[in-house]
Amino acid sequence: MLCVVGCLALVLILYAFADKPNDHKNGFTRRVPAVTAMFQHSLTLKYPAYYIAGYTNQHIYLGNYSASLHLLAVNQNLQDTQELTLKISPEERYAWKLTRVMVDSPAVYMAEGNTPALYRGKLDDLMMDRFLSQSCFFNMLQNISTTSFISRSIHIDSLGNSQNILAKVKTDSPYVKLGKSILTKQVDGIFCTDGTLDYDKQTGKLVYLYHYRNEFVTLDTNLQVIYTAHTLDTNARAKIEVAHMSTGISKFSAPPTYVNSRVRIADNRIYVLSSLLADNEDRKTRQHNEIIDVFSLDNGKYIYTLYIPLKGEGRITDFIIKGDQLFALHDQTLNTYSILQ
């Protein structure tokens, strides 16, 4: 009995000393009342581990982290699904767990940055052929035209310091152009610069949003910075601790303060999926909603906040905005919401 009480007490003491996310005031406010998205349709997918690969006027395409050649096409009201399989020569060797599929109709790309390997095909026949063999290593890739991509790669300088940088990869010479000093190092260069990237076809602009600090960078397709802007919260510097181990691998040695998880651009606006609660929000808000802050693509100014009500399927892993519809992926569930204001 004493044992039981002792154990419970010990864990409770640990709990009392723990840093709980969103427990203390985060020091910023959101514009209230927020706009709440209207839930429309839901579709439970057959497998877990999907991500959004792209969309056309009629369909949304989902790729799968655990099946590199699998592609699922879903129509706008989630009524009709179609399972597709990319066709690739059996001799091709690539790290299938790292591949990502990108759909940019009528083309479809498959990229894997550790080999590196890049394949291109057409949506109507799905025959994938090797493409852009003059590429560089990358850990993120975004296609911006039929002949060029923006990659995030690890650059090692003459002193041996490694850091994430953005680069432009093209089919013609000079195949790779480095965009130095776009991503800025704060702690270790790799983790502290981690983030998400999205490209807006309409305006030809890219936004890179950091995960661990309140900052995003808007660029043009030549990797020229248009402006740097800030998300609402106060984390100007990444609050992370990184340990470098003798095996050459680096790992977090304390729980990182995760600020922003995903950026998407649509209709001249930047949508930022945030992890932090504002001081003027109820503590339960993030238990029942996903919070998206909306910024202007022209100048990075805050416009309003969007709440996406959760239906018990877990947090949003990825989302896109298409007209006045928001498609939210929760690992194995795809939901649509109306975000008409």
Binding site: D19, F252, S253
Partner: peptide, 18 residues
């Protein structure tokens, strides 16, 4: 051990005592 010592710190409950 090296890995264990680092990863145990990622737990929000025991960061301080890792």
């Amino acid at each position: 051990y090296e890995n264990f010592r680092v990863v145990i710190g990622q737990s929000p409950l025991i960061t301080r005592f890792a």
